[in-house]
Write a protein that binds this DNA or RNA. Structure first.
Lengths: 334, 334
DNA sequence: TTGTATGCGTTATCAT
DNA sequence: ATGATAACGCATACAA
């Protein structure tokens, strides 16, 4: 790697002159600038990023801690984060907690030594179950800003970007009832123990209660054979006329099982699930989804965090990114 | 952030004594070590990573450049990379090229200024189509090691980790012919223009030729309505008794379309696709897949790159990670 | 217009 | 056993 010192020596001028020339300082003569820039270009000089970071005491890097990246929701959030960060001239260091408290904690500790200017994170499943968050508070106390998205800890005061979990499911349930005249809506879930799962189920329960219907919830979080469970549930109760899945997988399974049971979709049975960019491609008929704007969630998170990094006075915010009901072929259009 | 200097001042000793004490140097008295360590713990001192990087001239960070992360293959590779890197005490900076040459090039340039000790990358679709790779060669020339996985540029000399694309598809085709007695195998693809796509198709063609059968290839790369195209193809030719998809999506579509056409799977029609961890969950019957060991590919890549970083003399290698045919319910067991 | 000196936080070498 | 000094590469306040 070429350094300022090398350029200076080759040109027989001082390091600071070279530095100023490269930064186009008005103190430097055009002639010198030209000479410096030519040599720099020739030797492919690039200012050493590490040295700059040490000097300016900022890394222009964000720490991103995700529970997993094989879940398409988080994959798409990551895409949004990466795109916006690149836009704003930030790098991202990515850590995966694998849904464990241990790795989440370790990553936070390891990176809060000046490696990053701030964190964007969604809390690991285990951390949520154990309701443990001291490791996160500790980072904030050490004055490294943290932004939480999707899965958040209410007790911690920090910027947050969340989905309208309650409302979107409430609305979808209302849609099935009011627009499609469904009476027996089965809610299917494999994430009932997560904060977002609870909110979504509440949205469903509220809509069901508001319409004086009977709640019907199938929790699959700890079940081995999900397909079989869904199949049996549908088989046992032929009066079920709609399935509302609150995750990105059980909705598709419900469609497949319903077809195996010879139920017509959407005539006999409507199916709505949660989904992302290409979810609908994977089912026939194409599944209707509550589309979480995952990309946008990621982008918003970066924007909010970087804004707070720049501002000296910052008001903590919680931004709600509304979801959108995207009708496919697995439910009737109104 | 607490620094050595602050500790030194509080303890009325010199910076270098503090540094040595914290590094458990034998030159320092036990008593001093104790005092220093206690204060350091109390103030939550952590050595500034950036300063260490500048000093040692290594970042312990790898640049990871992926075409996309919403494709489950790359998501799982990323998981493998992250896990192994954490293991070996490396961080990863992740960039997404979005399949474009522009972003790939930009990321490479931006990070080859001392930000990372080496790169792990899969070439963007656009770079492959345009057969442009000077930006990669240029990084290597500047003495920053690059490792390519999956989608590689043959002309560039560097470490590589690849899948047995040709062989795995050859074997799967043979399996359909020999074990299941299939005669009219339709190959379905939406990645025929990529290096890996070409290799996979060659594997198929070879097996077909070796068995004196008729080749039947459906290329969907630029098609709008994939479902319709697959449906029509199956409808038009009832003699098709097997589908071999070389990507992770068209196999599932083929199953759905075949069911719509009332073909029995696997009695009338076998389906084999490419897949990853949870692919089989998304179809009924569960799809048989050529399972690319994506996680392992990521882990191997990190190991190979880090090894080369440590060695002063390094022999370039190309490692082939064999795939595994995992039978689901969409093909007959032998 | 150019050059000198200083400091970012750490570590290593060389005194004391 | 402890401390002073230099160095990593860069940027900037200050001198010349």
């Amino acid at each position: 790697m070429t350094t300022l010192k090398e350029l200076a020596k080759l040109l027989n001028i001082s390091v600071s002159t070279v530095s100023k020339a490269l930064n186009d300082s008005h103190e430097i003569s055009e002639n010198t600038k030209r000479r410096v820039n030519e040599l720099a270009a020739k030797l492919n000089y690039k200012p050493n990023r590490i040295a700059q970071q040490l000097k300016t005491n900022q890394t222009k890097t964000l720490g991103v801690i995700l529970p997993t990246v094989t879940n398409p929701f988080f994959a798409e959030v990551l895409h949004g984060i990466e795109t916006k960060a690149t836009d704003l001239d930030y790098d991202i260091i990515v850590c995966l907690s694998d849904e464990t408290l241990l790795k989440e904690r370790r990553s936070l500790e390891l990176l809060s030594n000046g490696s990053v200017d701030g964190f964007i994170m969604a809390v690991a499943r285990e951390s949520q179950l154990e309701e443990y968050s001291e490791h996160i508070q500790s980072v904030i106390d050490s004055r490294v800003p943290v932004l939480m998205f999707d899965r958040v800890v209410n007790e911690i005061e920090c910027d947050k970007v969340v989905v309208d979990d309650f409302q979107s499911v409430y609305d979808a349930t209302e849609y099935l009832i009011k627009q499609e005249g469904r009476k027996n809506i089965l809610l299917v879930s494999n994430i009932e123990e997560l904060s977002v799962g609870k909110l979504r189920i509440s949205g469903y329960e509220k809509a069901i209660a508001d319409n004086a219907l009977k709640s019907n919830v199938l929790k699959l979080g700890s079940i081995e054979n999900v397909e079989e469970a869904v199949y049996k549930c549908l088989e046992d109760d032929p009066s079920i006329d709609a399935v509302l899945s609150i995750d990105h997988i059980t909705g598709i399974i419900a469609i497949n099982m319903a077809k195996n049971l010879k139920r017509s979709i959407p005539e006999d049975l409507s199916v709505i699930g949660f989904g992302y960019e290409h979810t609908h491609l994977l089912s026939s008929p194409k599944i209707s989804i509550i589309h979480q704007k995952a990309h946008e969630i990621g982008a918003m998170s970066v924007k909010l965090l970087v804004d707070s990094l720049k501002a000296e006075e910052h008001q903590l915010q919680t931004i709600v990114v509304p979801s959108e009901l995207k009708l496919g072929e697995s439910s009737k259009s109104s």
